[in-house]
Structures are given as structure tokens and as C-alpha cells.
Simulated scan of single mutants.
Amino acid sequence: MANNRLYTLLTYCIAMVWMANGLFCKVLNLVPRHEQIVARILGEAYARPLTLAIGLAEIGMAIWVLSRIKPRLNAVLQMAVVATMNTLEFFMVPDLLLWGKLNAFFAFLFVLLIYYHEFHLRAFKKL
């Protein structure tokens, strides 16, 4: 029973991370640093539309997390996206990251949380 509640709580927390980063940071551009990162990595000319597209994809990820459709595929994709994004940022734009290169540590913790949520807790959850 406790594992079911923790699984559900983490499902909402993980979705909230994707929703906040997608909607508030990128779509609504409340954190301009995100668009600056995109501009530096992918080019200034299309920074806003690409940032918007990334934000919408992150909102889509939040919805997918909440839908619980193909959750293992979703978890693997989340881990790959977070690892890829943060590796690129670590080497290409560490000066624009909130915690500099330390961001990679927090990304690693988030990847571990996603793994724990889907591949450990879900095994104990009554589906």
C-alpha cells in the first residue's frame, strides 16, 4: 500500500517537473535562460520556435507520464532525453546553467528517480 502511494506521488512529481520546465520555462518564457541555451546550441535564428517546440514536447512528456501508457518506454525515453540534454549543456553552455556543471549531478539524480519510480517501485505496485 505504501509503495502504491509513493509510486503515485512520484508519478505526479515527475510529471510536474516536465510541465513546469515545458510550460513556464519554455512556452511562457518565464526563464529566458532556456531560450539562450537553445540559441547557443542550435542557433539564434530559430531559438524561439525551437524553444517553444521543446517546451511543447516537455508538456507532452508530462501528459504521457500521467497517462501511464507504455510506462517503461516512457521512462527509458525520459532518461535518455535528460541525459542527452544535460550532456550537451554540460559541454556547450555550462555558463548558462543554473548551477553550472553541477546541473549534471541533479540531472543524474532525476534519472535515478525515474529509474527507481518505474523499474523498482512499479514492480511492487498492484496494477
Rank of each mutant, 00 (worst) to 15 (best):
L113K: 09
K26Y: 07
T51V: 06
V82P: 00
H120Y: 15
F24L: 12
G60Y: 10
F24T: 04
N29E: 12
I69E: 11
V81A: 08
L66K: 10
C13P: 03
M61G: 10
F91D: 06
Y116K: 01
L6F: 11
L6Y: 07
Q36N: 14
S67Q: 11
L96F: 02
A83T: 04
C25N: 14
F108I: 10
N21I: 02
I14E: 03
Q78E: 11
F110I: 04
M79K: 00
A53G: 14
L42E: 06
A39R: 02
M16F: 15
V17W: 06
L28E: 10
I37R: 03
I114S: 09
A2T: 13
V93Y: 00
R72A: 06
Y115E: 03
L66M: 13
H117I: 07
F106N: 05
M61A: 15
G60I: 08
H120V: 15
Y7F: 13
I54E: 03
N74C: 14
L66D: 06
L50P: 05
F91T: 08
I114D: 03
Y116M: 05
R68D: 14
N29R: 14
A104R: 05
L97S: 03
I37V: 13
I37Q: 06
A53N: 10
L50W: 08
G60F: 09
A62I: 00
C25P: 01
L42M: 15
G55L: 07
T11D: 09
A123T: 13
A57K: 08
R5C: 07
Q78M: 11
A45M: 10
N21K: 06
L66V: 09
R122S: 09
E35A: 04
G43E: 12
N21Q: 09
I14A: 06
T11M: 12
L127A: 15
H34I: 06
L50D: 01
D95Y: 00
I37Y: 00
K126C: 07
K101Q: 10
N86A: 00
G60N: 09
D95I: 00
R122T: 05
